[in-house]
Structure formats: structure tokens, C-alpha cells
Design a protein around this nucleic acid. Structure first.
Length: 154
DNA sequence: GCCAACGTTGGC
DNA sequence: GCCAACGTTGGC
């Protein structure tokens, strides 16, 4: 099983919002970056786990753990003209964008902040993509050793 | 709100 | 295929 990190802006969707969803499960739609798309489409498998990371907010950090419940399938919000994620160039016969379904396992006992993660950037978390300067990818793989270490901080 | 870093677009 | 212009991300 692989591990991942999914970014979300908590004003739009956050870990607490899972509580109001059937089976605490949602489709992770709206990813509009090719590298992130490739991870969703080609690499994420049912049973993989993913951190939910809150970005563009007062205290950015990892807030919850989800499990992949459905592997990559076409993101149909790209086909809906009235949807904010509409992309006229995504053809239903040859979809450009993909999404997965994720189910919340649990919120973390506390948010493990970006600030705290950075203090480990040169040792235990060396090489972690999230901490790389200028990183903007909203879907990134997380190495097993990084995953375990982050959970040990909780 | 600023701005650096990055991805995408489009003219050539 | 190059690369400048532009739009977006996301920490601060």
C-alpha cells in the first residue's frame, strides 16, 4: 500500500466536512494539474492511505487521514459548464482530468503544522516533496518512512 | 495583499 | 522547440 498527501483549502473543504458526507466519503475532484492527474489516474489504488493537508490558511498542516476507496476515474465536473471546475477541453470520450474517492479514517488528534514539519526537513523528513521549495503539487506521494515519522509526531 | 515559484499557453 | 507572458499557488 502506498501513501499520499492531498492538499485542500479548508475554506473550500476540510477534514471536519467529511462528517457530513455519506460514509464519510467524497470524490476528490477539481485537480487540474497534469502531474497530479497522473498520480490520481495511474498510481493511486484502493486501500492506499492519504494525509489531508490544509493549505492557504492561518495554520497550514496535516489534519487527517483518509483511505482510497475508488481508484482513478474521470472527473465529470470538467464536463459541466456550470461547474467551477469546468474545462471545455476535456472531452468525455477522452477525459483529461481524473479523480478518486477517499474516505476519512480519522482526524489527527492535532494538526501537524507545516512549521513543525519543516523543523525535520533536513533529517527525518529529508526529501519530502511537500517541503521542497516552491512545491505546488496538490497530490504527492509520501514515502513510508516519512508517513511513519509524521504519525509518530502526533 | 505581496510576491516568488511554478505550470501553461501561444506566437514565432 | 523556444521562451516570454500570463495565471495560479500558497506561505508569509
Amino acid at each position: 500500500m502506498n501513501h499520499w498527501l492531498l492538499k485542500t483549502e479548508p475554506d473550500t473543504f476540510n477534514v471536519a466536512d467529511f462528517a457530513g458526507l455519506p460514509a464519510r466519503t467524497t470524490s476528490w475532484d477539481g485537480v487540474r494539474n497534469y502531474q497530479a492527474r497522473n498520480y490520481l489516474r495511474d498510481s493511486m489504488k484502493v486501500g492506499d492511505s492519504a494525509f489531508i493537508y490544509h493549505s492557504s490558511c492561518a495554520v497550514p498542516g496535516i489534519a487527517g487521514i483518509t483511505r482510497i476507496k475508488h481508484a482513478g476515474y474521470p472527473d465529470d465536473t470538467a464536463f459541466n459548464k456550470r461547474h467551477p471546475h469546468y474545462d471545455p477541453d476535456s472531452d468525455p470520450a477522452n477525459p483529461r482530468w481524473y479523480m478518486v474517492d477517499v474516505q476519512l479514517q480519522r482526524a489527527l488528534k492535532r494538526v501537524i503544522t507545516l512549521e513543525e514539519l519543516r523543523t525535520h526537513a533536513s533529517d527525518k523528513l529529508s526529501g519530502m516533496l511537500l517541503l521542497r521549495a516552491g512545491n505546488r503539487l496538490s497530490v504527492t506521494p509520501v514515502e513510508e518512512r516519512h508517513w511513519r515519522f509524521i504519525l509518530s509526531l502526533e
